[in-house]
Design a binder for these strands. Sequence first.
DNA 1: AATGAATGAGCTTTCATTCAT
DNA 2: GATGAATGAAAGCTCATTCAT
Lengths: 198, 198, 198, 198
Amino acid sequence: MGSTPQARRSDTRERIQKTALDLFVSRGYEKTSLREIAEELGVTKAALYYHFKTKEDILSAISRDLGRPVDELIAWAEEQPPTMETKRELLRRYSAALASAMPIYHILQENQATLRDLAVGRELSDRVTAISRLMHAGDLEFDCRMRVASAVLTVHFGAFAPCGAAVGTVEQRRAALLDVALATLSGAPAPTMSPDPA
Amino acid sequence: MGSTPQARRSDTRERIQKTALDLFVSRGYEKTSLREIAEELGVTKAALYYHFKTKEDILSAISRDLGRPVDELIAWAEEQPPTMETKRELLRRYSAALASAMPIYHILQENQATLRDLAVGRELSDRVTAISRLMHAGDLEFDCRMRVASAVLTVHFGAFAPCGAAVGTVEQRRAALLDVALATLSGAPAPTMSPDPA
Amino acid sequence: MGSTPQARRSDTRERIQKTALDLFVSRGYEKTSLREIAEELGVTKAALYYHFKTKEDILSAISRDLGRPVDELIAWAEEQPPTMETKRELLRRYSAALASAMPIYHILQENQATLRDLAVGRELSDRVTAISRLMHAGDLEFDCRMRVASAVLTVHFGAFAPCGAAVGTVEQRRAALLDVALATLSGAPAPTMSPDPA
Amino acid sequence: MGSTPQARRSDTRERIQKTALDLFVSRGYEKTSLREIAEELGVTKAALYYHFKTKEDILSAISRDLGRPVDELIAWAEEQPPTMETKRELLRRYSAALASAMPIYHILQENQATLRDLAVGRELSDRVTAISRLMHAGDLEFDCRMRVASAVLTVHFGAFAPCGAAVGTVEQRRAALLDVALATLSGAPAPTMSPDPA
DNA sequence: AATGAATGAGCTTTCATTCAT
DNA sequence: GATGAATGAAAGCTCATTCAT
């Protein structure tokens, strides 16, 4: 007694992941050295190697943790019939999932050249590819495929960068872009719109 | 005649740019070392430094050369009134410009974390930002902004990655995505579309 | 027992300083490469960087260690009244301090052009300047200042170079030059002297 | 006619020497690169090699030109009897010669470690040694040698660095230090002096 | 009288990783 | 559960120098 029941087993591993994530996001994977992570945490580099086999392994763990929602989403979608309605739902859920998983995708996004030859890079981009594949599933006509592509691009890349001024909150923008994407998907115009008020 | 016609004042500088571009695209900026570039070219590292002040300077020269079409496009757009028609035309031209300038944007795309703290990185992303700014120019309503954002995302990111299967030629896909983007821009559905044949 | 008694937490740092000092003295700071230091010691260049942040940092550590006597002397002198007697004593003590600190001042002396733009160079020449400043303290007449200057130059530079033949031991010469300097300081002739036996 | 009679033969060689001298003085010999010299002059590095065989050769030419007065002084002194009066005169003339030759001695002074293994370095320090040797010539007693040493050190090193505050003009200081040195040489006090006005 | 192009050797520094303790 | 010490490989860059033109 006196100590928290079953936690006790050092939270260092998690602290490493947290710190590493922050640095990978703010400085990039390649440009973040293990020395920096260790220093920021107040431990030695060797300590990182006690908890993780390699630098890549740290990112790998982060990827597994943060990517779970998307993995589950993929698993779910793979069991649905490839109808338009499924895809609409998939897009909605993907948009939501991205909101929380953003950091890793941000890392993937900004460090593609580096992650390309790392196993963890494959893992990450496989998830994106899987979503895209599921959105394109079925015997679609060319035009339709392009609308699907546009919708996916809008939702996926709209999640990064403050594309087009800082109007509204992040959440509002996400929702609005999702609406546009859904409209594009159905080949319908986005609801209320005045044509030439530029 | 009989000997190399007009050479003399060395084409090495251009050969360096060409080789560097290839390697930056295929292996990434950071992961491409000057040794590799030099070896590939059959010269010494020092030769690179005869022609360029730094590694960044090589990328900078490439950026200037390949980015010119986009720069001209921006200059053009800045002189037009910010009407919807201007934007439609801007989007068309941007789509076309991207086709040829793709390599540098690809590099920007995949090496953001690295380029972020390089002057050339700024140069590059400024161009993208400028296009986006021009597309959002004027007193747009929130919904309209989001449609603009979607259109830009579609055209810009659609130029990279074989998003959604390899149907059609690159050129066909580009044209089709542009159409989708233009439709989104106007709030209209993309022309002929059957709603649920997924 | 039987194994190296107290080692364990590595004496490498000190060995680096010792070796570096020797090389800096014999070959010059700039002309001594880290490779040389490392090779001489039988370690890798990277090992040097484990113990010191930069090449300059190695010199800096040496400077701190060997410069301490002079620093203490300066501290002492700053608390004394600026009388002639203080200055005589300061000169005596400086002469003595130089004897042990000579290596670093030798390095400063012979590498001024290089050290000029290094922080450690400032540190070093500040010490010399401080002594000079203290010797000149007070409201001295011009002639007197020049005698002080001569005395300082004699003691300081007399410590290097075998100025004027190798008569007597180093220690004897040091003592004799100090006497001459003290005589100059008081404006008196150096004690026993036959005028023209050249 | 129209061109200056016999000058015509490009003044580039001299311009190189002038520029090199400036840079060697202000940045140091080692730290001044041929690129810098060439750039400053608006010519190419290869041009330097048309006029001089090596970098050292540039310094060598400078040394020959500026060192001539001292060389002549040495030649003169070698023909004189080694009397005290000769030495007094030698010291006077050396003090004067230094005033104009200062730049090269400054370079020697601040780049000793580098010049040590260059032929030109020997040339330079030989001159200093020769003066010192001539000042010590004859069968001097130990004490007397030390007074000579002090006198030489005072005159030689007094020519560099603003030793002891910036009172008077450079020329005044030089003259005054010479007086002190001459007094030391004769074993007499420097003329009028109040003993303890610190 | 000078240039454009290139080289070879070297430099300081950084990094991911290992391992005995 | 972690540290102190060290390594091997590589990076970007600079320099004096050469030589055909």
